[in-house]
Computed example of a mutant assay.
Amino acid sequence: MSAGPVQLRTEQLSRVYPSGEGSVTALSSFTHTFAPGMTAVVGPSGSGKSTLLNLLAGFDRPTGGTVRVGDTDLNRLSEAGRADFRLKHYGFVFQSHNLVAILSALENVEFPLMLTGMPARERRERARTLLEQVGLGQRAHHMPAQLSGGEAQRVAIARALVGDPDVLLADEPTGNLDSRSGETVLNLLMAPARAGRTVVLITHDAEVAARADHTLRVRDGEVHVEVPA
């Protein structure tokens, strides 16, 4: 967490996987500074979008190059160090909400703060505030199985935002939702982008991508920055 926007930057970022007697380049020498706001990452299946997201998050290590968040080079951190850094500086929203089934909506939102050691009263208050902001204050004590798909995804967004992350990564967050729920989720994700945070959104939906401030198009491991007409 930080007092202001923190820059996310890649430098000659690449990922090559062994394949039989050869290799497959999943991402090729990508250098880019992510501007504050929402960046949509688009491209066909297998193009390298998920590889890029995994590298940006530090879930995977690059074959070459760096990912920096502020002054921190993720590749210089240990696995435990990257996990701790993600907890403090990242928020994640996936196509499947990934809520913990045995925890209530409120407890799911609290969970990342519990891992940081935040006192119970403070984290409970913050989680309640986020649930109110996503319009689910009245559903705080419902279990995930009692929520609709759109509601569960809104809980997931509250969980992603509760730590005030510097970087928010979203992988097809509207993919399983009807158009109305998808619109609600997209608007919630755009709020931190408007506040100057860095939001990176993978999407197959051209209408969703059109709402973003910036667009990256990925094809065969090559990433291109789209310039508005």
Results as ranks from 00 to 15, higher is better:
G117K: 10
N176W: 10
L177M: 11
L169N: 01
K88D: 11
D73R: 12
H89W: 03
A209M: 10
V227G: 00
V199T: 05
R121Q: 12
G58M: 03
R194G: 06
E21W: 00
P5R: 06
L168V: 14
A195G: 00
D71K: 09
T174F: 04
A210M: 08
V223Q: 01
G20V: 02
R121Y: 07
D71S: 11
N187F: 09
V134F: 12
E132K: 13
A40M: 05
F34P: 05
T63M: 13
F85S: 11
G37F: 08
D60K: 01
A209N: 07
L168G: 01
Q7D: 07
P62D: 14
R194Y: 00
T174P: 11
L186A: 10
E11V: 15
M143P: 05
S50G: 00
V100M: 15
D164E: 13
M114P: 03
L168Q: 03
V208D: 08
E21P: 00
R124H: 14
A212I: 02
H204K: 11
R180F: 14
V67F: 11
T33L: 05
E172G: 04
A210L: 06
A101F: 13
G149N: 05
E132G: 13
P228K: 08
T174H: 04
P228C: 08
V6D: 04
P112V: 09
G58A: 06
V200L: 04
A145V: 08
E172S: 12
T39E: 02
L115I: 09
L77W: 06
L113A: 07
G70K: 00
Q153A: 06
F92D: 10
A145R: 05
L186I: 09
T10P: 10
S104I: 09
Q133T: 09
H141C: 04
S96D: 15
D60F: 14
V69W: 01
R76T: 15
N54R: 11
V218C: 12
V100A: 13
P112N: 02
M1N: 10
Y90L: 08
R219S: 14
T116V: 09
R15A: 12
T66R: 13
V16M: 09
A209I: 03
V100D: 03
A80R: 10
E132D: 15
N187A: 15
D166V: 00
N54S: 14
F94A: 05
A229S: 05
D205N: 14
M1Q: 09
R68T: 09
P228L: 08
E79F: 13
G175S: 07
R121C: 07
V185L: 08
D73N: 15
P18D: 06
V162S: 02
M38R: 03
P173V: 05
D205Y: 09
V200C: 06
S179I: 14
T51N: 08
P62F: 14
V109N: 11
S104A: 11
S50R: 08
G150E: 06
Q95W: 12
M38Q: 06
P18S: 07
S28Q: 15
G150F: 10
G149I: 03
Y90K: 05
D164M: 05
I102W: 08
V223W: 01
P165N: 10
M118F: 00
L131H: 05
V134K: 03
A57S: 15
P144Q: 04
G48R: 06
